[in-house]
């Protein structure tokens, strides 16, 4: 299978499994506009490569490895969308399709450069979906900005990280990464939101409202923008 096709499958599975349930083959074939037989065949191949777990009649889920690739592609896709609309000024209706074409060709270096030139965006331009954090070995976006491109290509696996805002009420998680400038990271750190800290989401107001979390025995209110920068697992 071609790299592009593999990535397309994994990406689609990721987007269909947002609810946490295994993805049905019929769903997948409809979304990808392919015959169910073709899809089944491909899924078996992906499963043998260890990228998905495929159980006939039950559905397909991503393995850790598959999730890493899918998240990476999603990040590239969303960064490209930002680039196409913010910097090139493309119409928003064209952006998605174009990004789909480009995402498979974008190298990791180019991804990093894109993220920097766009000033580390949080979300997509059109639907404000969150952009997954990069897998670079950096402690903050400030550091990334300062570092030369050459020496950060060493990628780290950032498995299944999601922004805090995607937790359900009452759900617990561990902080893995905080995106953003020095002062906000320092502020959060001092209040006990450090890497590895256990948090639980107390309350999330819908739309652009703030969230409330509990961390180290205290309640802390965070604006949505801040909460989106905190990635948990």
């Amino acid at each position: 299978m071609k790299k592009e096709v593999v990535e397309q499958y994994l990406k689609t599975i990721l987007s269909l499994s947002e609810d946490g349930k295994p993805v049905k083959t019929t769903e997948l074939s409809k979304k990808m506009e392919l015959a169910p037989a073709t899809v089944t065949e491909s899924l078996q191949k992906l499963a043998s490569d260890g990228l998905v777990k495929y159980e006939p009649y039950h559905g397909t889920t991503l393995t850790e490895e598959g999730l890493v690739i899918a998240t990476k592609i999603r990040r590239k896709h969303r960064l490209l969308e930002r680039f196409l609309s913010d910097m090139l000024g493309l119409e928003s209706s064209k952006v998605h399709e174009q990004a789909c074409e480009m995402e498979h060709k974008l190298s990791d270096e180019a991804e990093v450069a894109l993220c920097r030139i766009l000033n580390h965006p949080d979300t997509c331009s059109d639907d404000s979906q969150s952009i997954p954090p990069c897998g670079l070995d950096v402690k903050s976006c400030v550091e990334c900005k300062d570092q030369a491109l050459a020496d950060i290509v060493k990628q780290k696996e950032r498995k299944s990280l999601k922004p805090l805002t995607e937790l359900g009420a009452g759900e617990k998680a561990t902080i893995q990464f905080i995106r953003g400038g020095r002062s906000i990271v320092q502020r959060l750190n001092s209040m006990g939101l450090t890497k590895g800290a256990q948090i639980s989401l107390q309350k999330s107001s819908p739309f652009s409202g703030p969230v409330e979390i509990s961390v180290r025995g205290c309640k802390v209110a965070l604006g949505r923008g801040v909460a989106k920068k905190i990635f948990v697992q």
Binding site: L188, M191, E212, K219, A221, L222, G223, R224, V226, A227
Partner: peptide, 9 residues
């Protein structure tokens, strides 16, 4: 960019 809310409740 407005900085976000960070406040102990």
């Amino acid at each position: 960019d407005p900085a976000g809310l960070i406040m102990e409740m």
